[in-house]
Write a protein that binds this DNA or RNA. Sequence first.
DNA 1: ATTTATGCAAACGTTTTGCATGTGT
DNA 2: ACACATGCAAAACGTTTGCATAAAT
Lengths: 160, 160
Amino acid sequence: MTEHARGHTHSAAPEAALREGGRRLTPQRAMIWEILRAEPDTHLSAEEVAARVHERMPQVNASTVYRNLDVLVEDGLVLRTDLGESRAFFELAHEHAHHHLVCESCGAVDHVHDDVFADVPARIHDSVGFRVGGREVTLHGICRQCADAARDPRANERDS
Amino acid sequence: MTEHARGHTHSAAPEAALREGGRRLTPQRAMIWEILRAEPDTHLSAEEVAARVHERMPQVNASTVYRNLDVLVEDGLVLRTDLGESRAFFELAHEHAHHHLVCESCGAVDHVHDDVFADVPARIHDSVGFRVGGREVTLHGICRQCADAARDPRANERDS
DNA sequence: ATTTATGCAAACGTTTTGCATGTGT
DNA sequence: ACACATGCAAAACGTTTGCATAAAT
């Protein structure tokens, strides 16, 4: 689940992609990019990104972060994912889909490989003509930890 | 798609379920329930429910609607579904899962029968131990209409 | 010179809260 | 009488916007 840990294609600063749209790679933008790159497995909300930015560049305004996240998403460099409950998260755009499993109990976000969906998109397309998004899917449910905790109350010690 | 139009299990006013928790079926609650029951295929946001309520009972405050939607969800009578983009919708709780397909292009919400998922939940559980929610799943993508419109620009006439 | 980006502050829209009043049990 | 529910107004929340300034082209 950490196969893409070390820098490759997408980790290079995204100057090119930005400049295509007449955009500039400002220090603030670079910082946001860097923050997302540094935590590939965390799903950061806009607010959390803003907080991270603020730690390192206190003078940067939250609105700048919001604006830049929008820009990066618009240019396809960053992916905005809705995890439900009005929680939108941001992460670097990947080549291939990885899907999100949001635990309804503890809020944790697991990942699944695209494989598990097998031919579901095809079946959906066949039955209703809907083309499931090229990107990410979010499922809700109960993660292993919470399921275990519910099954064996004693295991609660590691939870809240 | 209107099989459950006339009163049976779920369409009956939910007095019993409410009273179990020491709750009361107030006129406001009944109205909300009625509104959701009247539009089984629409996915109403809290705000839209509030608006519908206001049409019929103008003196009812929005906060009452918000509070009551919470209560109904809490008691399992109403289902809150997150359709992404901070759009949460409400509908009467059903027996069996039906899933939502949100068109990223036009925002329309399609439904798919649970069948299309076949053994996906099992596969997910096997691979990461995550138990996909007993209820509803939301997928994002492009609906048939929008896909057709994109493929054959001439068909745009029925769209925006 | 022109465009793009920033900081600031103020506005926004939705949802939540505190509190006094009302209603049902 | 008591617990539960309501209306109202105010606050809260995360996000967005207008505008003057600053930086890059």
